[in-house]
Amino acid sequence: MSDNSSLRTPSQRIAWTATIVVSTLVFIFLMAPILAIMPLSFSSGSYLTYPLPGLSLRWYDDFITSPRWMNSLKNSMIIGVASTLLSMVLGTLAALGLAQWKSRFKPLVLAFVLSPVVVPGVITAVGLYFSFAPIGLTGSYLGLIMAHTALATPFVVITVGATLQSFDTNLARAAASLGASPLEAFRRVILPLILPGLASGALFAFATSFDEVVIVLFMAGPEQRTLPREMFSGIRENISPTITAAAVILTTISVILLATLEALRRRNERLKGGG
């Protein structure tokens, strides 16, 4: 059953055809929202219906000239980049430590480090709202960056940890035996080898922060509203075509992130295959 040529009986062929038909429908279901919303953002009319009355870039113009939308894009970038950097430092250190640490508590510590991914967003957000408000961390960039870092770091620990697992520790020993200091060995031997893993981790971290909205809903003041937060209010109030332009911009950023990640993965596989 590994390929079509081994499908001999009619019933098998029917089953295979059914699989293809159902899968195609599911692929359409998966892609439909993205494909439906894209052309609407280029509409010259203000109704979100087909057929389009004409094509124009007026909604993108609206987005770019609106201080509210541009400010939210800036906020998303600031918070995304800052929490990515912070989670990279914390996550990479932790992954390096966990790779060497031998203890029966290790699964417990790992479960704790990964738990922000599993705990429902509302619970984290409510907890942060209660405990950050009295110390002035709600309605501040710092509070949001810290909260997003907590959510993003598990992805860094996982991706960097996976890279370290396939890393040959003999290389670090060789560097040491050739007289490299630990820092030098890290900078010149370990770092270049785990760099793709770090980059994937950074992309995951950025995507996590960039897409997060529940914590922002609870903790951001009017000054810190991010792009998803602005979309949330936009969807609640009234879906204007400007939102579809914002959606296309967000999706483009996602596609760039995904493509970069895929390129990194391919490069990694090629390197492994070659070596």
Binding site: P33, A36, D211, I235, I243, A247, V255
Partner: peptide, 21 residues
């Protein structure tokens, strides 16, 4: 790609798109 692209698209974009649809 048909699975991963929606996976990576913002939740808000997808929710917004379903309303439009």
């Amino acid at each position: 790609i048909f699975v991963l692209l929606p996976f990576w698209t913002s939740l808000l974009v997808r929710t917004c798109a379903w309303i439009v649809l």
